[in-house]
Design a binder for these strands. Structure first.
Length: 559
RNA sequence: UACCCCAUAGUGUAACGGUAGCACACCAGGUUUUGGUCCUGUUAGUCGAGGUUCGAAUCCUUGUGGGGUAACCA
């Protein structure tokens, strides 16, 4: 984050910089992050958060958190709380905390002003009639028969809407703009609807609730937001955003739009994510496969890797698709420097060192992080019986296979060279264990005679191993581009059936008993793992695989 | 077939009328007690057609392609 000033300004930061240079708003910069509390924040929101809070930080401005809570039927305090937690976890804090619902009285007054100016009216058509009257993209709308009600009548009706005299849907308040406008949004947009619903903050104070378009811009204006940054789908709302500000004669906030984040293999619709949660397809909003902030957190992602990812992808108006590997790489890049190394065998194959004394064991020194000498070393127990990865042995190995095979020698990481002498099988021909011999002269992994081995494999002492569960996560979505999923009820067919593979009886080196949730650990040669915050107990940690290490061998061998 | 927006290597992004760069991916080497990391190198791009200009990725026109907008959601 220290090289912010060196990087090129994206188009929004350029606008901010230009405004400061021109003295607009006296050089003041005020942004806001405006989530609706109807779901958990996801990685797409992280992009917006980094943008809004980042701009405030970089330009000496301020950024508010404002909940756009104008739809009581979908919103909940659970979301209000999780959103705040996630923003803080990402490393940001707001200057002021607001709720659009705090502005309901002011918004109501302004609506009355619009009525008095002849710019708003109560429409008593049904939903269907209103929709039909809006026309289509190519056909102009038709004016509502209620459009010419008098100011007095409108004022009276609107007051009675507020007073609760009418059923849901009986009336709405609409702006009087232009039913023939080529901008659909300007064809007398709705300002208020009647909803006899309990609001998570205002309780039963209101039974009329403002629509997004009417609430959002005015909330910006009330907070004197200088740069109101939102995603591209609100672009067509900008004429209306400006219209309200103009007609009301209030502080002129300006709206700027950028392209939302699309990630390969990631569902980014709150509605669909909610469906996954409700259907029990995933283990809650924080399931490690979810693209939510809390999901990534539980998965083992760091806040700083998400921040650097957001910086790397930039901010434009181009609607693209970012490859998930960019996010993965930003995490690998960080964790390579910071994560301590440990050894863990996920698919164990027993190895007996026939020439190692029975009942004996010893401690071997292992480097904690080759990228960071200050992390020091630890001691790993070694004995006659070990586990190695099944993938690290091949009975009929090709020449370029550097690992263990009959008659071949391999290095045990931080240990000895071993040679495979005998393959033991059960009645069905399955390999049950290997009998190997170790070379006592090669302790630590060096041969005094200078002979080389190409391969180094990880291992865990059978006697000392932690026996536990490890969860391997993969993309939740089998298809690469979420936009390719057809709309409809069958979209869940696009899910990856192997997004979670749970392995039992994994063998971990004993020092791993001290691992705590949130601490990233590299299992050597396998990937980065983290203790699951929910499934673990002090006696038995359960690990989540955050991301694999890059692997050029499986790629090469599968060709 | 209305209105608005967008188009630069495979992907994402720079170049503000003056040498088309960067990152990731890919491919090929090197180092290596992680087939990781790191280092070196290679491949690869301005959507098409006109116009303005000494000079266009950049400005204009137009075509093509992609996206958004027609919820009493945000």
């Amino acid at each position: 984050m220290s090289d912010d000033t060196e990087s090129k300004l994206d188009f929004i930061r350029q606008i901010v910089a230009d405004d400061i240079a021109a003295g607009t708003h006296g050089g003041r910069v005020q942004t806001r992050f405006p989530p609706e509390p109807n779901g958990y924040l996801h990685i797409g929101h992280a992009k917006s958060i980094c943008l809004n809070f980042g701009i405030a930080k970089e330009f000496g401005g301020k950024c508010n958190l404002r909940f756009d809570d104008t739809n009581p039927q979908k919103e909940d305090v659970e979301y209000v709380e999780s959103i705040q937690e996630d923003i803080r976890w990402l490393g940001f804090d707001w200057d002021e905390l607001h709720f659009a619902s705090d502005y309901f009285p002011q918004l109501y007054e302004w609506a009355c002003d619009l009525i008095r100016k002849g710019l708003a009216y109560v429409d008593s058509q049904t939903t269907e009639e209103i929709r039909a009257g809006r026309g289509t993209a190519t056909v102009p709308g038709t004016e509502s028969p209620y459009r010419s009600r008098t100011v007095e009548e409108n004022l009276d009706l609107f007051a009675r809407m507020k007073a609760g005299e009418f059923e849901d849907g009986a009336h709405v308040l609409r702006a009087k703009v232009d039913m023939a406008s080529p901008h659909l949004i300007m064809r007398d947009p709705l300002l208020y609807r009647i909803r006899h619903a309990h609001h998570h903050r205002t309780g039963d104070d209101w039974c009329i609730y403002p629509m997004y378009d009417y609430a959002h811009g005015q909330s910006d204006s009330l907070e004197e937001i200088t740069h109101s940054i939102c995603t591209l789908e609100f672009e067509t709302h900008r004429p209306l955003y400006d219209w309200f500000i103009e007609q009301l004669g209030i502080f002129k906030s300006r709206q700027y739009e950028f392209a939302r984040l699309n990630l390969t293999h990631c569902l980014m619709s709150k509605r669909k994510l909610l469906e996954l949660v409700n259907a029990g397809v995933v283990d809650g909003w924080d399931d490690p496969r979810m693209p939510t902030i809390c999901g990534f957190r539980r998965r083992g992602y760091t806040a700083s890797s998400i921040r650097s990812f957001c910086k790397e992808i930039g901010v434009t108006r181009f609607n693209g698709l970012t490859d998930m590997v960019v996010l993965e790489n930003s995490l690998r890049h960080e964790l390579n420097q910071t994560a301590e190394r440990r050894m863990a065998v996920l698919n164990p194959l027993k190895v007996v060192l026939t020439n190692y004394p029975e009942g004996q064991s010893e401690l071997l020194d292992a480097v904690n992080n080759p990228e960071d000498e200050s992390k020091g070393t630890r001691q790993v127990p070694f004995g006659r019986e070990l586990y190695i990865e099944r993938d690290d042995f091949l009975e009929d190995a090709p020449k370029k296979f550097f690992r263990l095979a009959p008659g071949r020698e391999v290095r045990l990481r931080w240990g000895y060279f071993i040679r495979c002498d005998e393959v033991i099988k059960d009645a069905d021909g399955n390999i049950t264990e290997l009998h190997c011999s170790y070379d006592p002269e090669t302790k630590g992994g060096h041969a005094p005679d200078g002979r080389k081995v190409k391969g180094t494999i990880h291992w865990v002492s059978a006697e000392h191993a932690i026996n536990t569960t490890v969860r391997l996560y993969d993309y939740l979505l089998a298809v690469e581009n979420p936009a390719d999923i057809p709309e409809g009820d069958n979209w869940r067919d696009a899910l990856n059936p192997e997004s979670l593979v749970e392995l039992q009886d994994c063998k971990l080196e004993p020092s791993l008993k001290d691992a705590v949730p949130g601490e990233a650990i590299q299992f050597e040669r396998l990937g980065y793992f983290v203790v699951d915050s929910k499934a673990s107990s002090p006696e038995q940690p359960v690990f989540n695989r955050t991301v694999t290490l890059k692997d050029s061998w499986t790629k090469k061998s599968s060709q």
